[in-house]
Design a protein around this nucleic acid. Structure first.
Lengths: 145, 145
DNA sequence: GATAATTACTTGCTTTTGTCAAGTAATTAT
DNA sequence: ATAATTACTTGACAAAAGCAAGTAATTATC
């Protein structure tokens, strides 16, 4: 299975993770780790986010997550609301401050990507996004694990 | 700087890191972390690999690396050879066992990519690698930091 | 409708991972 | 010869992550 195409793809993987790594490192200039930020992002769009859900999607230890959430609560970025229907469950959501923080990160990420493509002409940029669409189309696995 | 193209690229980043993450997690089914494996890979092609070099390229703490290397030596995957010209320097290289381990990993990574593209027709595969070439060409930064 | 099993989350304890700074030995500069 | 630098090591420590027991609420079972 070691043909030239496989090697090309692996080479691209190395290139791209390195390139994105630069972007990440840049905008990750926060007091939080990548995992901590992912926890925040998980709460972003789902209004009914719970620890259980995050544990499943992010595959974290639940004890560890429990403490992560508490520290975000302490920092004023997250809030916990006990469910009225099920007293075991806490709904986790961003506070106003948390919202603003996430938006700021988002802005930084956009800027970072903007920088990466700033030297490109319009048609070159279009070629890049078209190439990305091609890759997405053909490499989409739709539920792998 | 928040135009549609930037958002498309960020969407692709999420997709691709997730896709590659699957691959990585799969073939990383080893007792080692990603960083530890990178240390091994660093020694792979350069016969004159030293701790200093790895510290620079991988940006690790030198004390940490020193211990990582020692644990690999203990596991029989790496060996240290004191330089005859400069007694401070140790050349680090893969043992026979280390070679075999790295080759095994490589094989697994190839298989994993092979699986990912197994459902593609030849011209689809070509389209993917062409798309990757396009992205590489336009997003190459050549020393960013 | 009391008891057992399960679920959601928490807490204590431990290991792993990573950092900082001081320490040693070899080399180079003055 | 002495000082400064370099390559690596070691000890002490902090942060991140994992394991397992524990609590409270809910659901299942007889």
């Amino acid at each position: 299975m070691q043909n030239a195409e496989v090697l090309k793809i692996r080479s691209f993987n190395r290139f791209y993770t390195k390139t994105i790594g630069l972007v990440d490192r840049y905008y990750l200039n926060t007091p939080y780790t990548l995992i901590q930020l992912r926890v925040l992002y998980e709460t972003r769009y789902s209004s009914d986010c719970t620890a259980r859900k995050i544990v499943k999607t992010l595959q974290l230890d639940e004890g560890y997550l429990s403490r992560l959430i508490d520290s975000f609560v302490k920092d004023g970025l997250l809030q916990k609301n006990r469910s009225e229907k099920d007293g075991r469950v806490f709904y986790i959501s961003l506070t106003q401050k948390g919202q603003e923080f996430v938006e700021m990160l988002d802005e930084k990420a956009n800027e970072s990507i903007g920088k990466l493509i700033s030297h490109l002409a319009i048609d070159e940029l279009k070629a890049v996004t078209r190439a990305m669409e091609t890759i997405t189309k053909y490499l989409s696995t739709e539920s792998y694990d």
